[in-house]
Amino acid sequence: MLDKTFAERLALDWIAAWNRHDLSAILAHYRDDFEMSSPYIAEMAGEPSGRLCGKPAVAAYWSEALRRLPDLRFEHLATLTGADSVIIHYRGARGLAAEVLWLDASGLVWRAAAHYQ
């Protein structure tokens, strides 16, 4: 079971890393083999499935997103804690968004899914 304090700290660290555009700090929350899904992966990474696997592929996608959106900033709205996942609800460049992060026993993200309004 996830601790609410851990989940909140994770969410705030994640938001802060994005707001600094610090790709290394963002990726530090994830396992090397994590999976990411987002409707914007097709647009920015050219992957029609909307899914990427592994840090190198996701890092390239996020690097391109940061390049295209130099003023990108997230406003934290809420952190929702599940048994083995966290939802970070925030306002981003394109409106309301939520990221679902599934965590392993060591507290690293093994799967993530982005959702947008």
Rank of each mutant, 00 (worst) to 15 (best):
K55A: 11
H89N: 01
H115Q: 01
V100W: 12
S49K: 05
I26N: 01
L69K: 06
I88H: 04
R51S: 03
K55C: 00
R67K: 14
Y61K: 01
G95A: 09
V109L: 10
Y30C: 11
D22Q: 03
L66K: 00
S49Q: 08
G95V: 07
A105M: 06
C53L: 13
W18E: 08
L101S: 14
V100R: 13
D13A: 15
G54Q: 11
G82D: 00
A7N: 07
T81D: 09
C53M: 13
A16P: 08
A112Y: 00
D22F: 09
L69T: 14
Y116A: 11
I88F: 01
A59Q: 12
R94D: 11
F6C: 03
D32F: 05
K55F: 00
L2H: 01
Y30S: 05
W102M: 04
W102V: 06
E35T: 14
Y40N: 13
L72E: 11
S37K: 00
V109P: 04
D104Y: 12
S106F: 11
S49D: 06
V86W: 12
A114S: 15
A11L: 00
D71W: 03
A25V: 09
V86H: 09
P48N: 07
A25F: 01
A113D: 10
I15L: 01
A112G: 12
G95C: 09
R51H: 10
L108V: 08
